[in-house]
Design a protein around this nucleic acid. Structure first.
Lengths: 164, 164
DNA sequence: TCACATTGGTTGACGCTACAAGTATAGCGG
DNA sequence: CCGCTATACTTGTAGCGTCAACCAATGTGA
């Protein structure tokens, strides 16, 4: 750890912009989704993952992995969404320690309604700014970085279509 | 807004990973800085911006722009750091509505001590995962996206070395 | 010079996330 | 089976960020 050189100009310029992106993007996503659908982005993402799952049902740990969330965070979010009628919880049949979360019909409607506007935002604010080559580059870049951010390798590597 | 097509497989794979990165990176930065220096990343970044400014002093609005923060957020953070003796606030001489924040000697020491470890984390968790070409690509990608995330164009575009 | 809007910043309340316990079940090793 | 550890959550609390006022100073137009 003793000799980690400083960032050169190119690295620094890149880093500063990446920090800015990480700082600004969540707010952009949250704002649009909240105004149009009354959801935070993390809630949308959670519902979207459930909507793609078999029987629209997932165990909490599996859902936490797919959403890159800690279990406490997910637990709170799911409880609040359950109070709003978007999901319901039930003990898992095979393991009585476990809980499964299932998307309700109301939750299904909410995600479906939210999806169009959300995808529109993703396009207009991010993807439309990039050429197809850049989209590919960004994919490779994020794929290279993510393993280094993920403590235990429980990443979104297992990816399933999460929209539509 | 009516016909925004869904994301194709490549776009979706990219987006899912970008979301994961945005979700995970802040925690990684916060954890290292908190453990090693008792700072959140946003606090570190704020102190670093001040440390590069003339007389280690900036007006709150200018500092907010450089840190991509809202004014209320910055105000709270600066107040808390003032209570810890890292910065101090004073009314601006030229405009009596304005406040300037100045880095104290103690604050200066804290950033300096924090910098090495922080840069080490930035390297080991992000930059080391990328080839020099990818660093350049990421810079161009973020440069393309940021204007679309920034509501008012008050970005970190005005960039000054923030480390060392 | 006197309203009125604008800018610059602070403050308080509320919601969300992280962290630390706590509970309950499951899976061992002996 | 009987303790022990590990797993799968849930819950409580504390801290940070957002949003909506709010106040003070500054411009601006009549």
């Amino acid at each position: 750890m003793s000799d980690t050189p400083w960032l050169d100009d190119d690295e620094l310029a890149t880093w500063v912009r990446l920090v800015a992106l990480v700082e600004l993007l969540p707010g952009v996503l949250d704002t649009q989704l909240r105004e149009d659908s009354g959801l935070m982005h993390f809630e949308y993402y959670t519902l979207a993952m459930l909507s793609e799952a078999p029987d629209r049902t997932l165990r909490m740990t599996a859902l936490a992995h797919q959403t890159n969330a800690t279990l406490p965070r997910l637990s709170h979010v799911v409880r609040r969404m359950e109070e709003r009628g978007l999901v319901k919880r039930a003990p898992a049949p095979d393991d009585r320690r476990a809980t499964v979360a299932q998307l309700t019909d109301a939750g299904w409607s909410v995600v479906q309604d939210a999806a169009r506007g959300h995808v529109g935002t993703v396009r207009s604010r991010v993807l439309d700014a990039l050429s197809p080559e850049q989209v590919g580059q960004l994919r490779q870049i994020t794929e290279a970085i993510l393993p280094r951010l993920d403590p235990s390798g429980s990443m979104a590597g297992t990816y399933t279509r999460y929209d539509r």
